[in-house]
Amino acid sequence: MTSSKDNGSTSSARAAEAMADRAGLAVVCVECQNGVIGPESVLPALAAETHAVVSDIARLVTAARGAGIPVVHATFEGFVVGGRPGKAPLWRALNGAGADRWQPGDPATQVVTELFDPADIVLGRRQGLSPTRGTELLPVLRSMGIHTIVLAGVSVNVALPLTAADASEDGFRVVVARDAVTGSPAEYARQALRHTIAMLADIVTVDDLTAAWAAPAVRA
C-alpha cells in the first residue's frame, strides 16, 4: 500500500519534472527583505519562523540561477508621499512597528543578503498588502515571456495566497516550493499549504526542483 506521504512525494517529483524545460519559468521571492524576515523585522514572530527556511530559499534561488532561470524579488518599499494604508488590522501592526516610514533604499526594504544576487530583478511596490494587485509584477513577468511562477518567501498568511490567486487567474501556472515558504504560527502554515495554497498552486519541494534543474535542459 502506498502512503499519503509517498503520494505527496511522487506528486511533487512529477510536478517538478514537468519544469525541466526552463523556458518560461521564473522564481518569485515574496518579501524576503530585511524589514520582514531580517533581525529588525516588523513581524518578529514571522521572522522567527522564516529563519528555518532561509537556507532552503537560498538553495532554490541558487539552483534557478545556475539553470538560467530568472529570480525576481517582490518587495514592499513603503508608501508614496500622501499614500494611505488599507483598513486591514495587519496595517495597524505594521505601521505601529515603523513600516509606514519605509522608503525605497532603506535597509528594511532591501533583499536579505543570503538571497540576493546583482543579476536578480527587484520589483518594489509602494501600496497594498498584495504583491500583485495594482503592481508591475505580473505585467513584467509576462513581458519576459514567463508563464510559470515558482513562489518562495512569506507568507502563507496573506501575501502568498494573494499572489497565487491573482497569478493563476491571470493565466500563469503557479508552483509553490513548500519548504521555501512559511507563515506564523508554523502549524497554521502547514494547514494553509495543505488546505488553501494547494487549491491555487502545484506544491513541490526544493529538492525536486533542484534535481529537475540539474538535469540537462529539455529542448522543444
Rank of each mutant, 00 (worst) to 15 (best):
D106A: 14
A119S: 14
P104A: 07
V80F: 06
A211W: 10
A214Y: 09
L138S: 04
A16W: 03
A63S: 14
D6S: 12
V81R: 13
R65G: 11
D202I: 09
P107N: 08
F172Q: 02
V181D: 01
P104M: 05
L129I: 11
P185F: 05
I203T: 03
A63T: 06
H147E: 15
V206N: 06
I146P: 01
L209V: 10
V150D: 06
A93Y: 11
V122R: 12
S4W: 09
M199I: 07
T113D: 15
I146Q: 03
P39W: 00
A63R: 02
D56W: 06
A212K: 10
A165R: 15
T132V: 12
Q127H: 15
E169G: 13
L137F: 05
S55N: 09
V204K: 10
V206E: 06
A63C: 04
A215P: 03
S184V: 04
E49N: 12
A152F: 11
V150E: 06
R59Q: 09
S168Q: 14
A99T: 05
A97D: 08
G38M: 00
S9D: 14
V54S: 05
V181Y: 00
Q127V: 11
V112Y: 03
Y188Q: 14
V112H: 05
M144C: 06
D120W: 08
V71M: 03
E187A: 14
L60F: 02
E17Y: 08
P216K: 04
W91T: 10
D120M: 11
I197G: 00
A189E: 07
P139K: 05
T205S: 15
V206W: 07
L193E: 10
D179S: 02
F116W: 13
G83E: 03
